Simulated scan of single mutants.
Amino acid sequence: MGKRIVCFGDSNTWGYDAVTNGRFPDDVRWTGILKKLLGENYTIIEEGLCGRTTVLEDPLNEGMNGLKYLNPCLMSHSEIDYLVIMLGTNDCKQRYALTAKNIADGLKRLIIKAKETPAWAKKPQILVVAPAPIEPECEQSPVAGEMGICSEKSRALAKEMKLCAKELGCDFFDAEQIGTMNQIDHMHLDKESHARLAEALASMIRERV
């Protein structure tokens, strides 16, 4: 059986395409490209949900709390070898009123829970991916009413998440290095960024697993 990699995220892992208001095809999503790049010795498991947060209950939408779903998710896919977490974008929504540090603290709770879950083939190995920042234009885009004021907070996430990853012994990647947003809602990765993200993560995963 190939090495099992769980990719736990939100709409940018689910593959939301703002141009069509639908989902990118398998061979366009970063998870699908990652599967192709890594080959048959790896099993890539998509666990993306639009709207998912690190640890927050959404008062408007059911089931968005990543912490509550994490244990059954990992156990259902066990035994796993590597966990990729890319969350935090939705935590930036104005209605949650959090700081970037608060969001990173939520991520810390996720990581600790993941490590304690008896779903690992060997020792826990986790990669924290700081999401590419939301652009300021999002706040005047079609999703402005949903997101509110969010871009400045989003840009501060990578610094806090890097500290969190270091503290807990996780790998870290800042998706701002490769990410460009679509020019409609300015908060979802464009097609080209999915490919670049997959290439970057494939290199890291080959070194670790």
Rank of each mutant, 00 (worst) to 15 (best):
K113F: 05
S141E: 04
I112N: 12
E139M: 08
S193M: 11
A97H: 10
T20F: 03
P118Q: 12
R206A: 07
E57T: 14
H77T: 00
R95K: 15
S78G: 07
S193R: 09
L38Q: 08
E146S: 04
I45T: 11
I44Q: 11
L49E: 08
K153I: 02
P131V: 00
L34A: 09
W120S: 06
T99A: 10
L107C: 11
E116I: 05
E207Y: 10
G145I: 04
R95L: 04
S193W: 09
L110A: 07
K35I: 09
D10G: 05
L127Q: 09
I85N: 05
C164Q: 12
L87T: 01
R95G: 01
E116Q: 15
A165P: 01
K101N: 10
I45C: 13
R155D: 03
G169K: 15
S78A: 15
M187G: 09
F24E: 05
V55S: 13
I134D: 01
D185R: 08
K108F: 03
E176V: 02
P133I: 02
E79K: 15
S203M: 10
R23T: 11
K162V: 00
S11V: 06
K35M: 11
V84L: 14
L67R: 15
P72R: 09
W14G: 08
G22Y: 01
R95S: 01
G9I: 05
S78I: 02
C92K: 03
K159Q: 12
M75D: 06
L34Q: 10
E62W: 15
E135W: 00
S76C: 08
D81F: 04
T89C: 02
G169A: 14
Y82H: 11
I149Y: 05
R52P: 07
G66E: 02
E167M: 14
G51R: 13
I126L: 08
E79T: 13
K166E: 13
A158D: 00
F8M: 06
L70K: 07
I45D: 10
K191N: 07
R208M: 09
V143E: 06
D185P: 02
E40R: 14
